[in-house]
Design a protein around this nucleic acid. Sequence first.
DNA 1: ATATATATACTCGAAATGAGTATTAATTGG
DNA 2: CCAATTAATACTCATTTCGAGTATATATAT
Lengths: 315, 315
Amino acid sequence: MSTTVVSIGLSAAIVAVESEQPVVLVVAHDGTDDALPFGPFDPAHHRTLESGLRKWVGEQTRFDLGYTEQLYTFGDKGRHLPSSGLQKEAKASRVVSVGYLALTRRVKEAPETQWRGWYHYFPWEDWRDAKPAMIDSVILPALKKFVKDAPNAETAEARRERVNVCFGEGWDEERVLERYELLYEAGLVEEFYRDSGKSGTGLGTAMLFDHRRILATAIARLRGKLKYRPVVFELMAPDFTLLELQRAVEALAGLRLHKQNFRRLVAEQGLVEGTGKFSVPARGRPAELFRFRRGVLRERPAPGLRLGSRRGKSS
Amino acid sequence: MSTTVVSIGLSAAIVAVESEQPVVLVVAHDGTDDALPFGPFDPAHHRTLESGLRKWVGEQTRFDLGYTEQLYTFGDKGRHLPSSGLQKEAKASRVVSVGYLALTRRVKEAPETQWRGWYHYFPWEDWRDAKPAMIDSVILPALKKFVKDAPNAETAEARRERVNVCFGEGWDEERVLERYELLYEAGLVEEFYRDSGKSGTGLGTAMLFDHRRILATAIARLRGKLKYRPVVFELMAPDFTLLELQRAVEALAGLRLHKQNFRRLVAEQGLVEGTGKFSVPARGRPAELFRFRRGVLRERPAPGLRLGSRRGKSS
DNA sequence: ATATATATACTCGAAATGAGTATTAATTGG
DNA sequence: CCAATTAATACTCATTTCGAGTATATATAT
């Protein structure tokens, strides 16, 4: 009776927004795929999972985590293989990985880490300028084939449904994970080839282990949370203009918003208060600087930026 | 790395609705507190954490779990299992436990388990008939004292804020976990005394370890999910009347809804379709039987029962 | 027939939403 | 200085959704 060894990996998607791009902190090991800061959970030395995470992240990035939130625990067989090289453990060892989301506005890089725009990994998720061309030119044709190649009619119907929900009419910006998983199963991302031992190329930039899936979960969670909790402010400087705030939300949601309505919403919700100071822009009219009104947490039941008004053609 | 053995436990809040009461499956060991069912994750035989959960739940209870959802992973030191026989290692072994929410409509009990209404554990969460009297008579006075006893003014202000958000004006039925944690910290639930080695009595029925916290997480998640995903139907018989559906939602949310508006909502969303059959009630006009329209998943982005219309005085 | 319990249809004002137009305030290039 | 540009801010308006009703229909029990 050989008990399969289980080890626990902790990874963090540490997110910031920089010049209208959501960025995530990655460890760029030479020659291998980008990785999220991660490390094994050592039960002998860590009292909780989160303290283990903080320790590892601290060592690897010298980064001090502020707001953190547990995302999900993945235990899938076959989704944790290294991208290159042989497996060292001869016997079946399993890695269960616990993913975290962390938000920060402090942007200092540590050695061996760098900030990368998250749309490098999910180019189909950025609809701010337009629907990404790759969806019609690459993704949908490939998914059509995926539906066609189904082993039976029932599977085909289920696949058709998923394709429609994920990439069909009515873009739901929160379904980041569902879309990634669909692309994975359809063999459209590199991790699929790696995990199944085949070879091929895929969409977006691959990540180590299942880190891209964790990042997808992080994005989905953050996009959802935006709407009912004032989390954006964790990513903003203390003072900001309303347009800067809007740009940050748009960057995260991957959508354009209607400017006037956005401002109406923010004002009505009482999320911010004016500082009396003004921005000094290169050109154009200066905008008032605002700050987050912390008091809102006391007053409103679910203060957030329920989006919905999209596609403001005049920025 | 040092290798303290880690094992993974899966605990599940398995929820059903029975005669207008939300019930949860508990293991009632004689003399001890109620516990949630708990099963080990066996990495040698289970491909994913969730399939592990389904397997042992299926074996032990013969339930057909419809919807399952991962809630949270706890790795706190000091959290032990009831003697499950699976921990053979004498030395420092740690249990990391992954909590799940599972919904089922099949209600047959397994040996040593029983269904209990979840409001036994959270009596202050059921506002269907009226605001629970204990809030004004017991909870708020005690919390007032908790605020007063704060070590300094800053803590007092923070506590006042929390009390107001949790139990003040405007009941937010989703804040189940926040309320439980507040009551715990204020020393109003039994688990507090147990965990701190003191003695005392508390509100609601206590549960083993931190299972009541997991259940609070489950309730909060389910109450939230109701609004944007058609999860209630996992808890309904295949055919049901609209009033039965409404009663189930009300039971879960702990609120009364406005009947006419509820029906309008359900109809507009296209969540159900008539079967042409009718109920045979003891008295009153028979109601049409409906069934869940699965097609809705394909069509709508976020089909759910966004509540909000409460307090329908005419049932 | 009447009381009771429930289903179902319809109304109506208030609020939120989506998509504008119009106006104001600043800067830069000529 | 002026015109072009950039962006802030104010205001409008039709549509939809929401919350809370009233009114009426269809059963059963007595």
